[in-house]
Design a binder for these strands. Structure first.
Length: 591
DNA sequence: GCCGTTTTCGGCCCGACTGTTTTCAGTCG
């Protein structure tokens, strides 16, 4: 069983315990365990034999540890099975509908015999549901509305879709309301989660009511869910919900911290505040003894008051950041401003949509100091991959343009297929002349875990393969990742001096956050690249940086934070020397 | 069920909304 499945099982246990009327603290313990497991950077089943290691995970005590061990050993959990058997079929599904909690779900299954969501829909429409205690017509109508919305729209929206929508709303609001200050997004969007449920916007203004009025009457508003003095909620075309909160400048820090989350991170902060005799809420800190309220203009000030350094939003998942921060051991993750260039891009030589010159001009206008042009190799016939002869021409074209392009340097490269048996799509002599070689899986993606792992490892042993691009080949919501032994691949990456790519393309986000976190632990270095096929795709770099930050990846591990001359020195040195070279150039902490 | 620069026992985050109620239970973020 993988972490996702185990996390779901613990979340189910928490829900079932709610039905049981168990202590909220016990419930919270299982909820926290589920969250923690979901964010873990390694597979639980791999370390389950080692009880010490399990106990070291925050929130893992005796009970949770032994349950995880049982799952790892047997593939199931008797406690879970017993618990589940105590309740009618369908309660857990019902509880996932907004507005239905444990009490209502239990009554609906016991008294109305509802077993699934379509029976729920019927009961809501026929009016029988509204007869349940503490439910009336209004509650039933609300639940029905949520249910239909859920059934029609699915659930969460990919980061790459939500971010441009957020930008669109903010631009329009700023234009409609020039007095708005500090306008920005919070929530899972700010934390860089790969999918988001809705968009949370925050700002400050002298006249909040006027801002809300402007917000709910923006041109693309499809529906207004809420409109009050300091908060509004709208649905925009795409069925995406956008919430806005307005506050005063001197209270912005508390509000931003509160609405950025994560919920678990916030809970831990409030516990910490409480231990200091303070009470933390979205408005600020209250001294429990004197009742005096303190407000904060910035998040930094709140953290400082709690005796902590600033914690980057992408790291606020209660996955060890508070423990690290309180000991001043929190690593400083790579930032967008650190990125100096892009090592993965395509042109109309293969399946890119724009000519070389246009891609280069766009990269330059984004402030990149360099761009690697890495069109596809010959096996990618659907992408009109280049044969060895065309690759030489391609290289000449890139070097020709490089000589005529002040302000940006070009690297001639290829995104070369790693063939099903692990051999390379070009002979060595075709690769020798290139500045950078990416190796990618584009075929035979259903190979077994062992075959796929051996295939990639074989390619990494080539002296020419500098970077393994989009390792797992997953496409957001469209294609599942390939099966591979990630730890083994990371170890060989370090051994051979191969980099792993954090593919920033909104459609990929591959590696994903948990992969980066694990790879960082194993000592891997990275390239964060956009895999751009259009001139506008370079904007996706921000997603890659966010994913890297979620994986606690420091600047020194990212090769495209290097200035051009140092990058070139890196790429022209033998692979076996590269990791130590990177550490030397960047002054990285010694392992 | 977890956890400890006050604690191995006695605590455990905070506020708001909604609708059904005669003072608050249930749900959410």
């Amino acid at each position: 069983m993988n972490n996702t499945q185990i996390a779901r099982m613990f979340a189910d246990i928490a829900a079932l315990l709610q039905l049981n009327g168990e202590s909220v603290f016990k419930i919270r313990a299982y909820e926290r365990a589920a969250e923690t497991i979901g964010n873990l950077s390694f597979q639980l089943t791999d370390v389950a034999a080692d009880a010490e290691k399990l106990r070291a995970i925050p929130g893992f005590g005796e009970a949770i540890t032994s349950k995880v061990q049982e799952i790892a050993a047997t593939g199931s959990l008797s406690y879970y099975d017993r618990l589940k058997a105590e309740f009618p079929v369908g309660v857990l599904d019902l509880m996932k509908v907004p507005g239905i909690g444990p009490k209502t779900a239990l009554k609906a299954t016991q008294e109305l015999g509802i077993k699934n969501l379509s029976e729920l829909e019927m009961a809501l429409e026929s009016g029988t549901f509204a007869k349940l205690p503490r439910i009336g017509e209004k509650s039933a109508a609300n639940i029905l509305r949520h249910l239909k919305h859920r059934m029609s729209q699915g659930d969460r929206v990919p980061l790459g879709e939500a971010m441009p929508e957020a930008a669109r709303v903010m631009t329009a609001l700023q234009a409609a309301c020039p007095g708005v200050r500090n306008l920005g997004f919070a929530g899972s969007l700010r934390r860089g989660c790969e999918t988001v449920g809705d968009i949370d916007l925050l700002c400050t203004a002298d006249d909040p009511a006027a801002v809300i009025a402007a917000f709910v009457s923006l041109p693309f508003v499809k529906d207004v869910m809420e409109s009050e003095d300091t908060k509004g909620s709208i649905v925009i075309d795409g069925a995406l919900q956008v919430d806005l909160r307005v506050t005063a400048d001197d209270a912005f820090g508390g509000l931003l911290l509160y609405f950025t989350g994560s919920q678990q991170h916030g809970m831990r902060l409030r516990e910490r505040a409480q231990q200091m005799g303070l009470s933390l809420n979205e408005y600020g800190l209250t001294d429990a003894a004197t009742g005096r309220m303190e407000t904060f203009a910035t998040e930094e000030a709140v953290y400082r008051r709690l005796g902590l350094p600033f914690i980057p939003p992408e790291m606020r998942e209660d996955s060890g950041e508070l423990e690290a921060a309180s000991q001043n051991l929190l690593s400083h993750p790579v930032e967008m401003e650190d990125i100096r260039g892009d090592l993965h891009s395509h042109t109309d030589w293969t399946d890119g949509k724009a000519p070389l010159a246009e891609m280069v001009a766009s990269a330059k206008s984004r402030g990149w100091q360099y761009l690697a042009v890495t069109d596809h190799s010959q096996s990618q016939t659907v992408a009109s991959g280049l044969n060895a002869e065309l690759l030489r021409e391609h290289t000449r074209a890139v070097r020709g343009l490089d000589a005529k392009s002040p302000g940006i340097r070009l690297l001639a490269g290829t995104e070369m297929d790693i063939l099903p048996d692990g051999s390379l799509d070009y002979p060595d002599d075709a690769l020798m002349d290139l500045d950078v070689v990416l190796g990618s899986i584009h075929s035979a993606m259903d190979q077994s875990r062992d075959t796929m792992t051996a295939r990639i490892i074989k390619a990494m042993h080539s002296p020419h393969v500098d970077i393994v691009a989009h390792l797992t080949t997953r496409l957001m919501k469209r294609r599942a990742p390939v099966d591979l032994d990630f730890d083994a691949i990371c170890r060989v990456a370090v051994e051979t001096g191969t980099l792993l790519e954090v593919n920033a393309s909104a459609e990929r986000l591959d590696l994903k956050d948990a992969h980066v976190r694990r790879a960082v632990e194993l000592g891997v270095a990275f390239a964060i690249s956009t895999d751009s096929h259009r001139a506008t795709d370079f904007l996706d770099m921000r997603y890659g940086v966010q994913i890297a930050r979620r994986g606690w990846c420091e600047r020194w591990r990212v090769v495209n934070t290097l200035p051009f001359e140092e990058l070139r020195a890196f790429l022209s040195s033998p692979k076996s020397e590269r990791y130590s070279l990177l550490a030397r150039i960047t002054g990285a902490p010694r392992a």
